[in-house]
């Protein structure tokens, strides 16, 4: 739901139902980095209502377009995060598969400590 005037489309408040800080703060982050934005911020009018208001004021473009672009940017960022993460996990799994006998330093020190404890007890 958008609240704004028909004459001036450069400033609007968007009221999103069933959303919270998770989306609003992320969108605010991408909005703030858009050079067309002069002001943006969000608020949760009442903590018991699942609703956020996002305010966008721009230098000239329609606020809804700028917000849409911000979402698009956020999606691209997410896609990149996901592919990089999947790649990192796949790399780790492959390395573990190649060298199943390699132990981490923590495991080695743990082994040494337990061995020395055994010899000490004997």
């Amino acid at each position: 739901m958008e609240h704004g005037s028909f004459q001036d489309q450069t400033a609007s408040t968007f009221s999103l139902a069933d959303e919270d800080h998770t989306l609003a703060n992320s969108v605010r982050f991408t909005l703030n980095q858009d050079p067309r934005v002069t002001f943006c911020g969000y608020s949760i009018p009442h903590p018991a209502d699942a609703r956020v208001n996002i305010r966008v004021q721009t230098t000239g473009d329609p606020a809804s377009e700028v917000l849409k672009d911000a979402c698009q940017d956020l999606m691209l960022v997410c896609q990149h995060v996901r592919s990089t993460f999947d790649q990192a996990v796949a790399d780790l799994k492959r390395r573990k598969l190649l060298q199943p006998w390699t132990l981490t330093i923590k495991e080695i020190t743990g082994l040494i400590i337990s061995l020395s404890r055994v010899s000490f007890e004997n």
């Binding site: 958008e2 959303e19 989306l23 969108v27 917000l67 849409k68 979402c71 956020l74 999606m75 997410c78």
Partner: peptide, 13 residues
Amino acid sequence: LEDKCERLITELS
């Protein structure tokens, strides 16, 4: 999070 963005985009357009 991607789905949330997508939903917002479709709501706006």
